[in-house]
């Protein structure tokens, strides 16, 4: 019995954003508040039969950047430019540094959970319902549809390049890759014109039509209220 199935994608997206805002505004996190978030997300993941391993793995993507940026924090506490001073600063302020890494990680964990309980289509629909400008909806639809085609073409061109010119200098390689990207671009332009012709032929009015209509209802309201309550709880604890 997966209660998430009775929620609309709009409320799932909104809920995730509320959580993220709550986490950000109640930073820096203590071990307890961070733990509370992790526990909540894990519990929800179990209820939703989501792939917790996947979620955790994908959430690690934020660690390199967050880690690198957190390294800046103790620098202002370095009294003088000696190795000892650096060590002291980092040793003393490792906790705020950790807090700077934990906050983004918690946020990404929430978003990765969202990805587990929604398909790409769902999120796109949710964004459209929440009044994302239509041009962005159009762009996103095309991006999801055509990025695989582009990647396939890229791979095919790369293979052709490599098989015809195996031992090239770095400079020639760079030039060839520039040509590759350029030719892909021109192909994309031509394809864009053909796609547009196909769209016009099928009556395109400038808006992508959608059949789906899911209105928010009581389960969504309950879900959102709970999310807001939890977020406020985080804030008040802070």
């Amino acid at each position: 019995m997966n209660p998430f199935n009775s929620l609309t994608p709009q409320s799932k997206l909104l809920g995730a954003v509320i959580m993220v805002v709550g986490i950000v505004v109640s930073a820096p996190h203590t071990a307890f508040s961070a733990g509370a978030v992790v526990l909540l997300v894990s519990a929800l993941a179990i209820i939703a039969e989501a792939r917790i391993g996947q979620m955790l793995l994908r959430s690690l993507v934020v660690l390199p950047v967050a880690g690198m940026l957190s390294l800046f924090y103790p620098l202002r506490f370095v009294a003088e430019l000696t190795p000892a001073a650096f060590v002291t600063a980092y040793a003393t302020y490792w906790q705020p540094m950790l807090a700077l890494i934990v906050t983004p990680w918690l946020c990404v964990l929430v978003m990765m959970f969202l990805m587990e309980i929604c398909t790409q289509e769902d999120i796109l629909y949710a964004m459209e319902c929440l009044h994302l400008p239509h041009i962005l909806v159009l762009l996103l639809t095309f991006m999801f549809r055509y990025v695989d085609v582009m990647r396939y073409q890229l791979r095919a061109s790369r293979r052709a390049l490599v098989s015809r010119a195996p031992g090239l200098s770095a400079r020639r390689q760079v030039m060839l890759y520039g040509n590759l990207a350029g030719s892909m671009l021109i192909r994309a332009y031509d394809q864009g014109e053909r796609i547009h012709a196909a769209m016009l032929s099928r009556g395109y009015t400038g808006i992508l039509p959608r059949l789906r209509s899911e209105r928010m209802a009581v389960p969504d309201a309950i879900f959102l209220v709970c999310t807001i309550v939890f977020a406020c709880g985080l804030l008040l604890y802070h």
């Binding site: 095309f142 864009g192 796609i195």
Partner: peptide, 9 residues
């Protein structure tokens, strides 16, 4: 539509 294809690229 051109913008969309370029975004994908």
């Amino acid at each position: 539509v051109l913008m969309a294809v370029l975004a994908a690229l």
